[in-house]
């Protein structure tokens, strides 16, 4: 192995971005701490985005104290599927997807009593899942449904909602990927839990291959479908919304998570101030080569 070949193999030669460089050159310089609450608090973030005309999943009810806690079931009249979320949660902790038939509730692990649901809400209020363990607010959110073009890519037993991660530097989208839940990830789209990352060409919105954990893959390991060549629906809207987010939340380097809902089109699920780096594997491209 000669020196030139080693040099070609260095991460910097591939334009890859590491954690140290991401923190030093993008997060610390682009993202002011004072603006973090704009996104750490999901309810606040949703309000902020809605005011600027960016759609987010509908909030069905907010539980922020004893009065709302006593009447929590009143928010759910006529709702058969909903999500319970902590407003200042992090890493997806404390999120519970619930389906309801009359007075019977079911979550991912099976039937759940109203007492247990209420206990989970109390846990959220007590700050068990909040980013700094301070007391928190819980809210109910409508459950989104995958756009058919996207649900085709998910194995039927996996369930769960796919999302699209768009990394933006100021108003400029720089890289995107589709995250697919798998059986292995138990319906979650988190990459480190076994979800698939599928790279997306920014200009066309077409997928161009994928990744599983840290590996590059061509076909979906569970369905065998070729991961490249699929067009993401509503791509121009996603790019349009994404390019406004940075200015709205006051952060210069963000990861925006979209869901393409079958009925309502693209919506922003949440905004992340420390977007992960595995998007580079999904796209087989380094972030350094596209960032300014």
């Amino acid at each position: 192995m000669n020196f030139a070949r080693i040099k070609r193999m260095l991460p910097s030669a591939k334009g890859l971005l590491g954690i140290n460089a991401r923190n030093l050159n993008y997060i610390y310089t682009h993202n002011r701490r004072a603006c973090f609450p704009n996104i750490d608090d999901k309810l606040r973030c949703k309000n902020l985005l809605n005011r600027h005309g960016i759609p987010t999943p509908k909030t069905l009810g907010v539980i922020d104290g004893p009065r709302t806690l006593i009447n929590w079931q009143a928010y759910l009249d006529g709702i058969s599927e909903f999500v319970i979320k902590p407003s200042r949660g992090f890493g997806g902790e404390g999120i519970m997807i619930v389906t309801r038939e009359e007075r019977e509730f079911t979550n991912s692990t099976g039937p759940i009593s109203t007492d247990d649901l209420e206990f989970h809400i109390m846990q959220i209020l007590n700050g068990a899942f909040s980013i700094d363990n301070r007391s928190d607010t819980a809210f109910f959110e409508e459950k989104l449904i995958n756009e058919p073009a996207i649900s085709e890519l998910i194995s039927t037993e996996a369930g769960g909602v796919a999302d699209i991660r768009l990394i933006c530097q100021h108003h400029r989208p720089v890289m995107a990927m589709l995250r697919l839940p798998t059986r292995a990830s138990a319906g979650k789209a988190n990459l480190h839990q076994g979800g698939l990352g599928v790279g997306i060409d920014l200009a066309t919105g077409r997928t161009n291959g994928g990744s599983s954990r840290n590996r590059i893959i061509k076909k979906h390991p569970e369905t065998g479908i070729d991961l490249a060549g699929h067009t993401i629906p509503y791509w121009s809207e996603i790019i349009e919304y994404g390019s406004q987010i940075s200015e709205i939340v006051g952060l210069g380097y963000v990861g925006v998570d979209f869901v393409c809902d079958a009925n309502q089109g693209p919506m922003v699920l949440e905004v992340n101030a420390r977007p992960g780096l595995n998007i580079q594997i999904a796209n087989q491209t380094g972030l350094r080569s596209v960032l300014k």
Partner: peptide, 15 residues
């Protein structure tokens, strides 16, 4: 701002 050693492993398929 260089790479952490573990990142060579993480990005080995790209490298």
């Amino acid at each position: 701002s260089g790479f952490r050693l573990a990142e060579y492993v993480r990005f080995r398929y790209l490298l």
